[in-house]
Design a protein around this nucleic acid. Structure first.
Lengths: 217, 217
DNA sequence: TCACCATAGTTAGAGGTTATCACTGAAGTT
DNA sequence: AACTTCAGTGATAACCTCTAACTATGGTGA
């Protein structure tokens, strides 16, 4: 998070303050959500006046964009670290769930309700695809024991997003459903739509995962 | 939406103003999202000063709660109307998608990122369950051609949320996955996570639906 | 018809926010 | 030692929510 490559003392100071701002911002987001993020409050917490923060971030939007970027980055790193241990798609799913439960607001910063005027910068969409890569790899290692569906064929002709990944369309399809189904279960759980329903969200998540991989529960 | 049952002229006027406030609020939400909803701006649009709105809503939170309630109500009515025509689970799914695409912000008001301090009143959770009923009915009419899973058995012992619905656990499971999977596909589509990926979200939605019902694509 | 009163809408203001501006003072550089 | 760069300041504008006190008006009971 902190750029320790900085040479001059000024750059190091700047990087450190910038990092502390982000840290406070994450605390605020974790407790009250992104919409309640207040530059003023952060400044006050850090013992300086409001406008001082504008030396470090052009405004609230830029700070949030930075946080969104960090959130994406964090998930991408988590996935990369998981796959580096030779883990399968199940481990990836649990890594996702752990990452999400670890800080639900961070999850919603990535996959939650979009801000209307906002469009993610290119480097963020690049990280989004970087997240996809380990998922595709893991899905490619799964046994292909399912009959090809019409959507598989369609996907074969619309596989731009795989960016040259050699996996067959059935694998792409599996990765896609992995993403959307686990997001469906996870986001509703995190948003509290399962509370009071009497069943354990973890078990439902596991059930969805098992149906995804085809392995017995 | 408008309470035309009002007796006195004052009540009718009041109901009408209240309805117009909500209408303007929906416009604002549609263009700038719920977080950008401004009572002041609504008042100015309606040609009156800010504090006047407090005669109609106790505050911003109450207005948003009302809008959330209306959104739930709208979805429940849409489902009820769909099921009244003797439609199956497929029609229900398309009704959901149409309803969501019709006003994405309304969808996110119901199923999107939760507001941190906010807890839905009882009558809203009641509508949420009211939404579940037609879905359970439709799923019960589907042929049961799948082997029972361990999660089915687990669900049999945790079926409080079905509220006395006679459907077997397999049906509950199906309704649950219907909900979460379609939400997963839909919410990612609405949030723009599929843009630039090259495939048609409608086709993916259809593919998920077909896998859900077991019918050929 | 007239007086009354409940209520819609007003202005003023407290306290919060983002953000810009001109300025000060200190740190690093030459 | 002089100079330049830049972090942080207070003042200010323009918003926001929400409260309080006041005015004006339309419906209603005597």
């Amino acid at each position: 998070m902190v750029n320790s490559e900085a040479k001059t003392p000024r750059e190091r100071y700047r990087a450190q303050v910038q990092a502390e701002i982000k840290e406070r911002a994450w605390e605020q987001i974790a407790t009250a959500g992104a919409s309640a993020l207040s530059l003023n409050a952060i400044a006050k917490q850090m013992g300086m006046s409001g406008p001082a923060l504008y030396r470090y971030f052009a405004g609230r939007d830029e700070l949030i964009t930075e946080l969104v970027r960090d959130a994406y980055r964090s998930l991408a790193d988590t996935f990369a670290a998981t796959v580096r241990t030779g883990s399968d798609v199940t481990a990836l799913a649990h890594a996702l769930r752990t990452w999400a439960l670890d800080d639900p607001h961070r999850y919603f910063l990535v996959y939650g309700t979009p801000v209307p005027g906002y469009h993610a910068p290119d480097d963020i969409t690049a990280i989004a695809r970087e997240i996809m890569a380990p998922l595709l790899d893991a899905c490619a290692r799964l046994p292909e024991d399912r009959p090809a569906t019409p959507f598989d064929e369609y996907l074969e002709e619309h596989r731009d997003w795989a960016e040259g990944h050699p996996a067959p369309a059935a694998v792409l399809h599996r990765a896609l459903t992995f993403w959307t189904r686990l997001h469906g279960a996870l986001s509703l759980e995190l948003a509290g739509h399962f509370t009071g329903l009497g069943f354990d969200p973890a078990r439902f998540f596991a059930a969805e995962l098992h149906e995804l991989t085809g392995s017995p529960e």
